[in-house]
Design a protein around this nucleic acid. Structure first.
Lengths: 230, 230
DNA sequence: GACCCCTGTTACAGCTTGATGACAGGCCGG
DNA sequence: CCGGCCTGTCATCAAGCTGTAACAGGGGTC
C-alpha cells in the first residue's frame, strides 16, 4: 500500500501505453492501464488509485467528461489527475487546470518530466507517496531505492518495516494511532489487530538499532511518534 | 476521550460512508457511522459524540427532524452539528442554519473542506477539540504531538494529566467545576468521584513543577482555574 | 478560638497498556 | 520440494496509570 503508488493510466494508443507502463514502473509506480473512460470508471470503482494519468482524446466518453464526472463524486473528488494532451494549443484551449485536473503534460513529453510532475502532484496531496528521499538526523530513507541508512551505514528492513518507517518519517513529531498506521500500511479494507503494530514497531526498532530507540517514541494511550530531535 | 474527537456520521450511502470514515480517521477523528436517524439517536443516547455529521436526506426520520429533536433536549442542545446536503440552493442553506445546525456543506464536497469546517465548529464550541497548539506564558501544549513544554523544556505527563491540562489551558481564567472537568475527560455517562479530580490536579501540578503551582489555581467551593498571569 | 467544610496528600489495589518472545502459516527463491 | 524469510497473532510479563479511601491540614464563619 504505502510501498508504491498505484497509477491508473487511461490511454488508447498501444505504443504510448507501453512507453508509460515501462517508464512508470521504473519510477517506480504500480501501473494499471485501461483504454477507455468507461473502463477507467470501472477500475476506480473497484479500487481507488493514488493518481490518474488521463489522455484527453479517447474513444467514447472524453477525458474532459471523465474529469468532470470524477470531480462531481465525493469519493473521487480529491483524486489527483494529470491530463495528457496531444498539442500545446489544446492545453491552452481546455485550460487544463480549469476543468479540474491537477496538472497536464503535452505530447511529446519526456518520461522524466512526466514523472516529476506526478511527484509534484503527489507531494501536495499525499507526502509519503511522492517518492522523495526523507532524511532526519542521521537517518536517511530512499523510497525509490527502498534503502535506509544511518550514518552512511546501510540498514536492512523487511518490507512492512520499511513502509512503516517511511510513513513515520513522513509525519514527524506527530502522535499517530495504531489505526492510522494500519490504514497507511494496509489500506482501510483490511482488518487486523491493533496490536500487530506493536510488533512491527518492535521489529523496526530492533532493525534500527540504538538510534531507533531514540527516534520512535511510544505515546502512551495513543500510539507512536517519530521524533525529530531525541 | 479528549485525545481524539468522536464524530458520529449519519449517512446512508455506503460509498460516502467509506470516504468519510477514511478521511476523518486520517484527520484524525474517531469515527462512528450509522445509517439512520434512529440509530443516531440510540448511539447518542449511549455516548455523546463531540460532533455530528448529518446527511439531510435519510430514510425514516429526516435529518431536519433529528436536529430539531437534538436541539430540544438539554443534553444535546449544544452538540455541534454539521449538515450535509445534496441540494445547493439557497433556501436549503438558510433552512439548514435556521433549524439549528452549526454549519453545512453541499455535495459534492472535498474532505479537506469538510475537515476545515469541522475544526472551525469545534474551535467555537469546544476549543480543546480543535487540535490547535495552545500556548500560555511559558507553557506550550501541542495536541497533535501530545507534548508539553515549559520554556522549551519537555514535560512528561500521563494521558489523563495531559488531557486535563489541555482542557484547562483551552479555558483559561475561568473557574471550572469538578463535574465539568470530569465530563471533559471521561464523557457524560461515566460516574466517578468528584474528588478524583483533586488527585489529578495534584499529579498535574507535580508534573508541571514550580510553574504549575502558579498557573493552576484552586477556586474554593467551586473547582479549579487555569490563570494566565501568575 | 472552636468547629466544620473543603482541599491537599498519600497509599494502595486493580486494571490497562506496551514490550517481548514464541509460533504457525504463507510466500518466495533456489 | 526444501529452507528461509516474512507476517500476523497470542500469551506473558513489567511498567505505568487510575480511581478510591483515609487522613492531615487550613480557612472561614460565627
Amino acid at each position: 500500500m504505502s510501498s508504491r503508488p498505484r497509477v491508473l493510466v487511461v490511454e488508447d494508443e498501444i505504443a504510448i501505453q507501453e512507453l508509460l507502463r515501462y517508464s512508470l514502473e521504473q519510477a517506480p509506480f504500480e501501473v494499471v492501464v485501461v483504454s477507455s473512460a468507461e473502463q477507467a470508471l470501472s477500475e476506480i470503482r473497484s479500487e481507488l488509485p493514488s493518481l490518474v494519468l488521463l489522455d484527453l482524446m479517447l474513444p467514447g466518453m472524453s477525458g474532459i467528461n471523465l474529469v468532470r464526472h470524477l470531480r462531481s463524486q465525493e469519493r473521487t473528488r480529491e483524486l489527483p489527475i494529470i491530463m495528457v494532451t496531444a498539442r500545446a494549443d489544446e492545453a491552452d484551449r481546455i485550460g487544463g487546470l480549469n476543468i479540474g485536473a491537477d496538472d497536464y503534460v503535452t505530447k511529446p513529453f519526456s518520461p522524466r518530466e512526466l514523472i516529476a510532475r506526478m511527484r509534484a502532484v503527489l507531494r501536495r496531496r499525499s507526502p509519503h507517496l511522492a517518492g522523495d528521499v526523507v532524511e532526519v538526523g542521521a537517518l536517511r530513507l530512499d523510497p525509490q531505492a527502498r534503502t535506509v541508512s544511518c550514518n552512511q551505514q546501510a540498514i536492512n528492513l523487511a518490507p512492512t518495516e520499511f513502509d512503516l518507517l517511511h510513513y513515520l518519517m513522513s509525519h514527524p513529531n506527530r502522535a499517530l494511532t495504531r489505526d492510522q498506521l494500519l490504514n497507511a500500511l494496509r489500506g482501510d479494507h483490511v482488518f487486523l489487530e491493533d496490536r500487530t503494530i506493536d510488533v512491527y514497531i518492535r521489529r523496526l526498532r530492533a532493525g534500527l538499532g540504538t538510534a531507533g530507540e531514540a527516534m520512535i517514541a511510544t505515546v502512551r494511550g495513543v500510539g507512536y511518534k517519530f521524533v525529530r530531535t531525541p
